[in-house]
Write a protein that binds this DNA or RNA. Sequence first.
DNA 1: CTAGAATCTCACGTGGACGTGAGGTGCAAG
DNA 2: CTTGCACCTCACGTCCACGTGAGATTCTAG
Lengths: 115, 115
Amino acid sequence: MRIGEIARRSGVSVRALRYYEEQGLLVPGRSPGGQREYSQDAVQTVRAIQQLYAAGLSSRRVAELLPCMDTGTTTDHQRAMLKAERDRIRAQIKELTATLARLDELVDAADRRGS
Amino acid sequence: MRIGEIARRSGVSVRALRYYEEQGLLVPGRSPGGQREYSQDAVQTVRAIQQLYAAGLSSRRVAELLPCMDTGTTTDHQRAMLKAERDRIRAQIKELTATLARLDELVDAADRRGS
DNA sequence: CTAGAATCTCACGTGGACGTGAGGTGCAAG
DNA sequence: CTTGCACCTCACGTCCACGTGAGATTCTAG
């Protein structure tokens, strides 16, 4: 598959896919003419990248963690990073939950006055 | 209180506080000599700003929502924004939870192999 | 064979939340 | 009165995940 179809199927821009290659996250093959050739499971990789970005990981972290998302095998270094990121995400969820509660209070108070 | 003490008490930089003023989020008074004079509850406001930033809100949104975080009263526009942001945050928590589960699986699999 | 998509490689632009000097002023202490 | 730290105002720099042309090449349909 060429870059345009991967872009459509995964919902990211063509530019983003080239950027991922630049960062070493998803490096496709090349056609004789020099065009990028993606395999089927590239779509899944893109989704994983997006998911990790959304969780606040940097390109560097994603590059270090993507291999074990594919293979399921981890080095000691990767396991340490995984646990660190887990903790970060857990803390983030906790804080978001608190923020949500605070906003809920505001809305509820407004609803009560409004009724 | 002057800017340095607010910075220490709230854990943000002096530059950040000046930036908040620039964005209209937290506008302190001025001493005769032109120095910023913050009230006691500025610390709480700073924490609120940080919390909203951490939840992914822009300065503009924070500026629109900070008043009702203080007073507890909301306009229709603010209530609509509150509900929209709540939904966004809820979705964000959901996605983070899924990501967390995925990382947990990886760590668990690695732990089982390691034991 | 040719028109026109689609893709290619530079390479500069963007937006947001500040960081970081440069050069000048306010204020409490000795 | 002066030392010296905290504060002031510009104003350019930073980081990151791309956006956005410009100009050239490749691929596909007729």
